[in-house]
């Protein structure tokens, strides 16, 4: 057994497990970056990681603080310009899996990273979309990872930065989008997947020790649970060891004491 671990560690491990060795992955900073690199260091050594700064097949030993840290280019197979990255590689349909997060998510996995409150009179002005609107529609499928609370899992987004499943059902197709969109949402409490027909996010697996009530309390809509609700296997010793070593190297690389 692996002893104690934090909910965030569980989230990162669960997100890493969702990736395959043959994935070509468009990686965002933060939780997605940790998950993708953990996958590479455990069960998916050949996974291709691409960062929007232009680095292709990058293999950093520590997590970058920003999307364009030097190690990403130093350890990459090659580095292309940013227009080439968005035009040939993302829009060209070369990416199997895009990883996104956000400040707010709704029950159809649409995301907001632009504003809390009205666009013209923000309560909180967030950094903005970055690559998200086109990542959400151009990658074969999307995984989302973010911590779960009533502030982030909301009934109605203040702003739709990037498309998930729209208002549900066949909305993506109606908008001319042919990719699968969000197929998994991995949080610090559970894993959710869109219902096959309605596309509403449904809890399919609870992390060990988490109750349905906890998930309900952390969700701003009346969240549904799958009939065959599973328990997420806790992190293995190897997963925890690799993840902690990765974070320790990252602290050193960012100039903090390990």
């Amino acid at each position: 057994m692996s002893g104690s671990y934090s909910p965030t560690e569980m989230m990162t491990v669960a997100a890493a497990r969702a990736l395959n060795n043959d994935d070509v992955c468009f990686v965002g900073i933060g939780a997605p970056s940790a998950a993708c690199n953990l996958a590479r260091m455990t069960h998916a050594p050949d996974i291709v990681l691409i960062y929007e700064s232009g680095t292709i097949e990058t293999k950093p030993t520590a997590l970058p603080l920003s999307i364009g840290d030097g190690e990403l280019s130093e350890t990459a197979l090659c580095t292309v310009s940013v227009p080439e990255m968005f035009r040939y590689w993302l829009q060209g349909g070369r990416i199997t899996t895009g990883f996104l997060g956000g400040a707010q998510i709704d029950k159809f996995a649409n995301l907001n990273t632009i504003v809390v409150g009205p666009y013209d009179k923000p309560v909180v002005r967030l950094p903005g979309s970055g690559g998200a609107p086109e990542i959400a529609t151009s990658c074969g499928r999307i995984f989302i990872t973010m911590s779960q609370s009533r502030r982030s899992f909301v009934d109605r987004l203040d702003f739709v930065t990037s498309l998930g499943h729209g208002q549900g059902g066949g909305d993506r197709k109606r908008l001319g989008v042919t990719t699968a969109g969000p197929t998994k949402v991995i949080t610090d409490l559970c894993m959710l997947e869109p219902d096959r027909d309605t596309k509403e996010l449904t809890v399919v697996s609870l992390h060990r020790g988490v109750t349905r009530e906890q998930v309900r309390d952390a969700t701003g809509w009346d969240v549904k649970f799958a009939a065959g609700l599973a328990e997420t296997p806790p992190p293995t010793e190897i997963e925890l060891r690799e993840l902690r070593a990765l974070h320790a190297r990252t602290k050193v690389a960012h100039g903090e004491a390990a």
Binding site: P83, F86, R87, Q91, N110, I114, S129, P133, E134, A136, T137, S138, F159, V160, T161, S162, L163, G166, D171, R172, L175, G176, V177
Partner: peptide, 20 residues
């Protein structure tokens, strides 16, 4: 890219379902 190419605008597959 369009600016460097001397074009008046850029066309791309984007903003689908987004609010910007």
């Amino acid at each position: 890219d369009a600016g460097a190419a001397g074009l008046p605008f850029a066309a791309f597959r984007g903003y689908r379902g987004a609010e910007l």
